[in-house]
Each structure stands twice: as C-alpha cells, then as structure tokens.
Design a protein around this nucleic acid. Sequence first.
RNA 1: GCGCUCAUAGCUCAACAGGAUAGAGCAACGGACUUCUAAUCCGUAGGUUGGAGGUUCGAGUCCUCCUGAGCGCGCCA
Length: 549
Amino acid sequence: MKAVIKSLIDKAVEEILKEGGFEAELPEYTVEVPNNKDHGDFAANTALKLSKAMRKNPFDIASDIAAKMKHPLIEKCEPVRPGFINFSISKTFYTDLLRDCIASDAPFKSEVGGNRKVMVEFVSANPTGPLHIGHGRNAAYGDSLARILKAAGFDVSTEYYVNDAGKQMSNLGKSIYVRYLQVCGRDVEFPEDGYKGGYITDIAKELQKIHGDKLLSMDEAEAQKIAFEYGLEDIRSGIEADLREFRVSFQRWFSEKSLYESGEVEECLAELRSLGHVYDSEGAVWFASTKFGDDKDRVVKRQNGEYTYFASDIAYHRNKYRRGIRTSIDVWGADHHGYVKRLSSAVHSLGVEDFEFNVSLIQMVNLIKDGERASMSTRAGEFITLKWLIDEIGVDAARFFYLMRDFEAQFDFDIDLAKKRTSDNPVYYVQYAHARVYGLYAKAEEQGLKWEKGANLNLLELDEEKEIIRKLYEMKGIVETAAFHHQPHRIIYYLQELASAFHSYYYNNVIINPENPELSGARLSLCAGVAAAVRFGLDLLGVSAPERM
RNA sequence: GCGCUCAUAGCUCAACAGGAUAGAGCAACGGACUUCUAAUCCGUAGGUUGGAGGUUCGAGUCCUCCUGAGCGCGCCA
C-alpha cells in the first residue's frame, strides 16, 4: 500500500511540476504509518520536502497533490498543516491484509535486500576456552541479524572465523602441554601468560588418558602440536555445542590456518604490494593504511617472519569477496574498535568494486553479581560461561534479554535480577500472547464453535481491531528498518507493542461467543493473525513461540 | 595527548534515512479475578532529551564547542 501511495504521489508531483513549469526535482520523502491515528492510515511528507525547491508554501503543495489522489482503496486524502498529506484507506485493504497474514508469512517479509549476498561473521571467539556471556551477546545478535536480513530479502550466509593460527594459539598448545606434564607428575612451572582456566587441566587429563606418557618422550614442539590440535578441536566442538543449544549454527567454520595453507595470505599481500600499498621497512612488511586515513601504517609481517593477525584478516575478506559476498557484516566486541579503520582501509585498498565492509561493534556486557562487576578475562580463567547462563535462565529469556538493547549501548547483565525476573521477564509477555491465541482455539473447539479462518472479516468493526491489523501491517517495515540499521532490538519493541495491543483487546472484548459464531470466527481470525506475527517475530529473535504456558 | 562510542522519566532502555503531542518496562500509587489462562488488564504520577550555539518549514536525531562516562591507541588477538 505504501508503494501504491508513493507511485500515485510521484505521478501527481510530476504533473504538477510540468503544469507549473517548475524545474525542481522530487526529493526523497517518506510515506509512513503515523503514530497518531487522527492522522489517518498513512501520511506523506512530500510537500514539506518539496517546498524549498518549488519556493512555495508546503500546505498549498500538499493541497495540489491531494487533489490528484484517486485510487479505489483511498477513501480520504487531505492536506494538513504544516504540509503533511494524510490518507484514509478502505477497510478492504485491512481485511485482505489480515487474510494474507493468516495464510502465509509473505506479508511480514520484504524484498528490499534484492537477493544481495551478505555474510554475517560473528562470535569468532578464539577457541582457547568456553564462551562467556560477552560472547553470548555477540552470538544472539549475529544470529538474529542473519535471520532478519533473510526476511528482508538478502541472500545470507553465516560464518565463524576460527583463529587456529598465531601466537595465542601456540600459547594454548603450550598451556595444555605444561598441564599435561603436571598431570604426568612432572614438577614444571606454569607459564605466566598461559591460560589458567580449569578446563585446560581437564583437556590435559584427557590427553593423558588417550596417549598415556607418550608425549613425554617426544620432541617438545611435536608434543605441543599434538596437545594444541587435540585441545583446539575439543574446545571448538565445545563452543559449537554451546552455540547449538543457544540455537545458533553456522553455515561454515572458516579456518584461519587454511588461508596460510592455500597460500592466500601471501597472494593477497603480493597483490597489495603490486598496488603499491605494501612496503618493506625495518625488516618488517607494512601496509600503508595512512593512505586511507589511518593514524599509522600497520605491520602485516613481523621481523621474525611471522604474519600478523591483520594479514590473514585481509586475506579472509578478500576470500569472502571472491566467493561472491557483496556485504560483509563483521560482529566484533567493542574493544576491537581500534581495528576497524585499518581493516576497512585494507579491504578497500584491494580495489574491490561494490563491496560493503561493515562492522557491528557490540558493546561490553558487564556482569553484575551481588552488586559487583565480575571480570571477564579469558586468560585469568575468571568468567561466567554462556552455558551457565543458559542453564540458569533458559535460552528464550537469555536471547530476548540480550537482544532487548541496542548493540551500541552497554549492557549490565544483572544475574541476580535475571534469575529473579524469570516470571515477569518481558519475553513471557510476548510469548503469552501467542499461547493465549492457542488457548482460544482450544476453548472454541471445546465450545463446539465452528469457524473458518478469514471468513466474514467485515464484522471486525472496532477501532482496536483495526489498530491490531495496522500493527500487523507494520511488521514488514520493522523488518526492513531492523535490517537496514542492523538492529534486532526493533523487533522486540514491535512485538511488545503488538502483544500489548492484543492483551488489551483480549481483556476488554469477548472473543468467543457461541451465540454469535460469525463474530467469534472473525475475532478468532484476528487472533490468528496476531499469533502468526508473534511467531514470525519471535523466530527472527530465535525465541520459541509456545502454544501453552 | 589523539581517536572511537555514548549521555533521553527515580532505574533499565525505545523513538523507523530529520517529521505532527518524546514512548515502554521496572519501581511508586490507586483499581479489576463468579470471566475465553490475572504470566493479564485499567488508571495516576513521573521530562528544559548533560550544557551552549548553529543548520531548516521542522532537531532527541545533523554540525561546532563544552562537560561527563566507557573503550581503544603493540611487529597481541
């Protein structure tokens, strides 16, 4: 309907401009569902946008445009000060819409994405230990964003980039190896910068179970390699299991090491060198990021011959592009923000056409426990795991909680509060709306009420009923804006509004009345539309929609 | 010191690419269960959108400065 109105306006403006001999061009304007229902079903700000170029009073322009609006579904179209054009739409539009919502998810989805290939790369935590609640926010966000983008018509893929190369990783091998030595009874000191978590010792014990004392007699480097590979897979698969329980799965786990093995890192640097963006200095190899606005040039290959993480990251994004990805959305922790400039510089310096590099910096999750902030350091081995959180408050509540806040805002996760709140957590408010509809179905059946979805919708005459259908119409726009801004929390706020409208409607009106089966059928149909929207919205968040609570 | 991100009700947060009267939840206060599930509903109160300028028909939203907070500034990831 928005599109219909827009095209009508476009045509009207074109005529007006031609008739009046104006040279002005039509600027961007919006057709939106107004907050205030006195402003009709739709409103356009076209005249306001146009007034400057036409050097004419916006209200007069609005009047001229309104006079040209003719469409069977438009019942009223009026200009209003300062220059909005408000539309009232025929009821047929609403009843048809409700019918469509019941029949399929189509009215909730959009095609703005135009099938563009988007990759959401998220979590990508170093596999040096289990995920903590900071990663949980990243996981909930990335997964939900991917679902939203899909609903908005993008061709979406998801990846977890596994840092299985580099210094932190050899540190992991060493840590496990030393614990192994200790398990075998050797008196060795644990390295200062090693990973101190108890899970390292657990891995060392398993290693001992499998290999016995065999590693003791081996060359240290070789033994560490075995320890590393075993530990890596053990931790990685543990992460995968936690994420699966959290309803997060990836299309691919992309290995950093594979970029070295395939020679892509070197290839990539050679390419940048030939473009003149990479040079040698002080025995190291540098990327000239200052050319792209960075503070200083960055090392891609150290004096000791090792590549930096930066080098493989450039190669990874080059690899994404070569696989046809045209938008890469990287979900990082906010503490990496100093890294954004340099990587975006590097990606753009490759001269890739039509490649959008995007980073969502997820702000920190501060854990509040007993009124105090808890440390989230992986190295120190002190952190609350995601697994623990899931066991404590459940997947639905955890995901909903994480997604409630804009990713750019810091978030204090008060564990005590989250636990206490399980019964009046807003997630239940929304879920209950869905369950309530199923309760009504059961009741209708119990009362022997025969009804058919979508029949006699003309009987829906209350303002509240129209409001609810209007809300259903809004879903699609919400999905579009959530996709555009990469902000899943918009879905939550929408769902709360929808649930609120429904709960209120339910409470103040009798839905099922066996003496009036026609009206009951119409109202149950409206409920079915609400249930469909709630289910669809919750699914975008990865939250379940129970039929009974 | 430089850079990034923020600052909205007592608290936690919304506000669609600048739109019409800045909204929810929690907490507070007052009401509603003989009812289709009260995990709910109805109502009251709560604001100089950190401060000062600017841009324009219109600013919580954009620009400049100030104040305050978090984070980053390594040949770590």
